[in-house]
Each structure stands twice: as C-alpha cells, then as structure tokens.
Amino acid sequence: MSVVVDIALLAFLAVTAFAVMKQRNLFAVAMLSGIYSLLCAALYTMLDAVDVAFTEAAVGAGISTVLVLGTLALVGHKAKKPARPRLLPLFVVLITGGVMVYGTLDMPPFGNADNPAHQHVAPRYIEKSEEETDVPNIVTSVLASYRGYDTMGETNVIFTALVGVLLLIATGEQSRRIWSADERNGGVFEESSEPVEDGHG
C-alpha cells in the first residue's frame, strides 16, 4: 500500500516540476513550488523521515514561498517567452540524465534492509543513542548531540546568509527611498515586503 502512495506522490512531483518549468507567470511558479514542497513533505512522511517532513513543510512550503512572493512584489511577475528553442541545454540535460540512469542500474533496490547504507554507523546510533543521550528520537539525538558541531556550522551559514541579504537589500536605492524620511512620491514600492525578506534570511 505504501508503495502505491509512494509511486503516486512521485508522479505528482514530476508533473508539478514540469509545470514549474513551463509556466511563465511567476506568481503561478511560486504557488506551484509551494505545492511541490508540500508533496515532498508528504513523500518524506511516507519514507519515515518525519523530522524532514515537517521541516520541509515549514521551511520549503512556508518560508520559501513567502520569500519568492516578496521578491515578485518588487521585481514583477511576467517572465519573457524563451526567444527560440535552444537545443544545447536539452542535449546537455539528456546526456547527463542518461548517464545517471545508467548509474542507477547498479544501485541496491529501494527499501531493502540489506543495503550497504544501513550496515555501518546507523545500527550503532539505533542501538546506543537512547542509552547515551536519553532522547527517544534518534534523528534529534544525532543532530543535536553526536553531530552538534555540524548543526552549529549550519547556524553560522544561516547567520552569514542573513548578513548577506541585509547588506544586499539595505544598500539598494529602493530601501534607501523606503526608509528615508524625505520620501518623494515615487511610492511604487511603498508597500514593499522587504522587511519580510530580511526577517527570514
């Protein structure tokens, strides 16, 4: 039964991704990418990665969509039609995809308990983590305890990104116009969603 749901969700994902590629209205693209993230979250739940699922639902479907919509409010939502069908990108993509499909032929089958990925390190976490950290959720204990430094590095990455976003946005003309007291009447961007973007960077 779970395999059927898995197949259906992956098929939906492929259709949504294709629609994102074809769609030229960027608001529709933002909504479709939100749907895409939500389908991903459902798929992760089916694949027993519940922590990843709720992170994806909150961050992918929530914050990313808000970020894209905030940007679209500033840059407009019409994408130009591609000038002519370009064959080189298609060729590159087909070759790369073909090579990767060839690579999967040697991969161990999906969901098999004997796969090499499950033989090393993971069994130790499953056996010992509760005893050692007293946290029943193994993902949490690995993330926050065994690989705490990794998570600290991740926090640094987010901080750096926030600083980057602030520097990029705050030095621009628009924000100077928005924040300055002697606002001239070029208020196209008055209802700007920039603060949203800053907050989540």
């Binding site: 922590d51 990843v52 992170t55 990313s64 894209v68 193994i138 690995v142 989540h200 960077g201």
Partner: peptide, 25 residues
C-alpha cells in the same frame, strides 16, 4: 529506518533556504 540521511537532509533544507534568500536578494 536509517536516521542518518534524515539528519543530513535536515541541515541541507535549511541551508537551501539560506541560499534561496541570498539569491532572491
């Protein structure tokens, strides 16, 4: 189910959003 991919991907999701935010800026 193997917990290690979940741990790695939790980090990757957050970093992905950070990249997206900088790109959009």
């Amino acid at each position: 189910t193997n917990p290690i991919p979940s741990v790695l991907i939790l980090t990757a999701i957050v970093v992905g959003v950070a990249t997206l935010a900088v790109g959009l800026a």
